[in-house]
Measured scan of single mutants.
Amino acid sequence: MSGIALSRLAQERKAWRKDHPFGFVAVPTKNPDGTMNLMNWECAIPGKKGTPWEGGLFKLRMLFKDDYPSSPPKCKFEPPLFHPNVYPSGTVCLSILEEDKDWRPAITIKQILLGIQELLNEPNIQDPAQAEAYTIYCQNRVEYEKRVRAQAKKFAPS
C-alpha cells in the first residue's frame, strides 16, 4: 500500500471527524483483525431537504486505489439507486470521479460526498449510466419523482 495514499486518507479521516456536513457519514471499514482499512470507507449521503430525495439516507462505498490521490476513489451505492447517473452496479457516474475528466488530487472526501448529493437531485442527462431511470427522467418527470420519493422512504434511517 502506498504511504502517500494512507497518509492522505488519515488526514481526510481526521478532517472529517473534526468537521463534516450534518447527516453525512464517512467511516473507514475494519479489517478482520480489527485494524482500520483506510482504503475502503462506508459512507452515507442524506437526501437534500426540499427535494424528492429528502428523508432518505443512501449508503455508498468509497474504494481507494494505491495511487490515490492521483486517481479518484470508486464510489458505489449499496444497494444501487434508481438514478440516471448511477450504473446498474451502483457505481456513480460523475465527472469529478473520473481521472480523465474533472478529478483533481486536491478534491476531498467531503467535496465528493457533497457533489454526489447535488447530483442526486440534478442528474447530468449528457452522461446517462442507467437506461430506465434516464428514460423516465426525460419522458415523465412526475413518475420519476414518485419513484425517487418511494426510494427515499425505503432508505429512511430507522
Rank of each mutant, 00 (worst) to 15 (best):
T35G: 07
G115H: 00
L6Y: 15
N85G: 01
L113R: 01
V92G: 01
K48W: 01
R141M: 15
V86W: 03
K14F: 07
T91N: 11
R147G: 04
K59V: 12
M39G: 09
K76I: 14
G55C: 12
G55Q: 11
G55M: 12
K110W: 04
Q11L: 13
Y137F: 09
Q151H: 05
Q117D: 07
C75V: 15
W16V: 02
Y144C: 00
I109G: 05
N37S: 14
Q117K: 08
K76V: 13
K65H: 12
N121L: 06
I45H: 00
D100G: 13
E78C: 07
D33A: 03
P128I: 05
G115T: 00
A10P: 04
G34A: 07
A133T: 05
N124P: 04
Q126W: 11
N124G: 07
E98A: 15
K18Y: 03
F155W: 01
K65E: 15
K18H: 08
W53S: 00
Q117C: 12
P128Y: 02
A131G: 13
W16M: 03
C138S: 13
K76L: 14
I96T: 15
T35Q: 04
P52K: 11
I125F: 10
W53D: 04
N124V: 03
K74Q: 14
I96S: 13
A133E: 01
I107G: 12
R149T: 09
P84V: 15
I116T: 13
L120K: 03
Y137I: 06
E122W: 08
Q117M: 08
E145P: 05
A150F: 10
R17S: 07
V86P: 02
K49R: 14
K59E: 11
D102L: 04
K59D: 08
E42L: 06
K48R: 13
I4T: 06
G50C: 09
L97K: 01
W41Y: 02
N37F: 13
L63H: 12
S89V: 06
G90L: 02
A129D: 05
E12D: 00
I116E: 05
R17D: 01
K65F: 08
L81M: 11
F82V: 03
K146N: 11
E132D: 14
A26K: 05
F77C: 03
K153E: 14
F64A: 03
A15N: 08
P32Y: 13
E78Q: 11
Q111H: 14
C93V: 09
P79Q: 13
D67Y: 06
N121H: 09
P105H: 01
G3D: 14
P32G: 11
E143T: 07
K153R: 13
E145S: 07
M62V: 12
A156D: 15
C138R: 12
K154I: 08
E78Y: 07
C43K: 02
A5R: 04
V25T: 07
I4G: 07
A15S: 12
G50F: 11
W53Y: 05
K18N: 03
L113P: 05
R13W: 01
F64S: 00
V148I: 15
Q130M: 01
P123A: 06
P46A: 09
I96Q: 06
C75W: 06
S2W: 02
F82H: 07
L38S: 01
K146V: 13
G90F: 02
P21Y: 04
D19V: 07
R104H: 02
S70R: 09
D100H: 14
Q130D: 03
K48H: 09
R147Y: 08
I112D: 05
I136N: 07
Q111A: 14
A150E: 10
L114G: 12
G115K: 00
W16A: 05
S7G: 08
P52N: 15
R149Y: 08
Y137E: 02
A129E: 01
G115Q: 03
A15E: 12
L94N: 04
T135H: 04
Q130N: 13
T35V: 03
P105E: 10
D66T: 12
K74S: 15
M36F: 06
E122Y: 11
K18P: 00
F24I: 06
G50R: 13
D33L: 04
L97F: 07
G47E: 02
K154L: 12
N85T: 00
K153W: 06
Y134L: 05
N85I: 04
R8E: 14
A150V: 11
E118I: 10
P88R: 15
R147A: 10
A106E: 05
K146Y: 12
Q11W: 11
S95F: 01
K49I: 10
L81V: 12
G50A: 11
S2L: 02
Q111L: 13
I4K: 06
M62K: 05
G56R: 02
S2K: 05
K48T: 11
A5V: 13
Q117E: 09
R13G: 00
T108E: 13
D33C: 05
I4R: 09
S158E: 06
L119Q: 02
E42G: 11
E132N: 08
E12Q: 09
R104T: 08
S7N: 15
C43H: 01
K154V: 14
L97E: 05
I109C: 07
P123E: 00
A156M: 09
G50P: 01
W41M: 07
A15T: 13
E54S: 12
I112Q: 13
E98Q: 02
R147W: 08
E78S: 11
P69A: 05
R141K: 10
G50V: 08
Y137V: 00
C93Y: 02
G47D: 06
C138N: 15
Q11H: 12
A150D: 12
G55K: 09
P21V: 00
E143I: 08
F82W: 10
V86Q: 07
K49Q: 10
P28Y: 00
D127C: 00
R147K: 13
D19H: 07
S71L: 06
L9C: 09
G23S: 11
P105Q: 03
E122I: 08
P28C: 01
K18G: 07
T108F: 15
K146P: 00
